[in-house]
Amino acid sequence: MKSRARFSTLRRWLALLWLAGLLVAAGLAPVLPLPYAPDAPDLHAIAVTPLTGQHWLGTDPLGRDVLAQLLFGARTAVLVSLPAAALATLLGTILGSAAGFWSNDNIRIPAVYGLAALGVVAFSFVFQLSSGTSILLLGIIAAGLSLGAARLHRAGYRQVVALPVDRAVLGLGALVASVPLLILALTLAALLQPSPAGLLAVLVATYWPGPARLVRAEVLRIRALPYIEAGRSLGLPDGRLLYRHILPNCWHTISATFPISVATLIGLETTLSFLGVGLPPETASWGRLLASARLAPTAWWLILSPALAILLTTLALRQLSNTVSRNPQ
């Protein structure tokens, strides 16, 4: 029993050590005294084996230094995957908590505001389209708004309608999740110019439904607890209840899944780079380094180094997630 606990502690420390090393490498990569830049080809050392000259980990078939690519690839992984996971989690938390807390009938707004908002959204969408289609659509929208206004006139302008937040968030999430993550990310990445910002947007746009569903379920559970009922009976506003009393209790779930999100997004970024989309060609990436092995199938070092980096990072993040879930403090 003792040895098992000791092994678990060792694993935890190893994982933390690896992740700390990764962060240091990512942060210090531009100032490290590397003999070669990651995108500078050494034309006299094409696909050379490790420990050849100053190329400690060898070079790829274009003569780029593998060590420099690994370090700068770590930087790319951290700079893309970490913000992407944070933003996707933030977006998922906002949408999931709103859906769980207000459900489908707890936010009520005057119908006239709803109609105006709908009109603004519809018109702004239509103005993006070509003129031929937009005239027809404008007509349809105007007719719909007129009908809505007439109905409001009959019912009285003070009529309120419930916003189906839960249904909207779940529907949108289901829509995004209905397409396999890789296919969706590939499609979006193909539409955008390759850039780190574009890749970040693609990763956030495709990954938020997971955290949203998780937070929604947690909020639904906490919302039914007696202390929330007590808060309501004391007359605390909804925003305060959600922000001060519910979300802090969701933190444990969010923090436990965050490392898993980072690991998944590193995997996704690596896959996209392997396929040659998402990042510009001069940006170092583990996936791109792995892909260069296709040009030199016998160059084992081109597979081993990035594969090890990806594997160890993923395992370390999973270990971190386990640690957080077992020890919330």
């Binding site: 830049a37 995108d39 080809p41 034309l43 274009l62 780029r64 510009p280 060609p281 001069e282």
Partner: peptide, 21 residues
């Protein structure tokens, strides 16, 4: 092609000319 562009980009960068592949 990629090798040519990267070599040119590196040489241009040393001279202070930004090149986007």
């Amino acid at each position: 092609y990629e090798a040519i562009v990267l070599q040119f980009r590196t040489a241009a960068a040393q001279l202070g000319i930004p090149v986007r592949p």
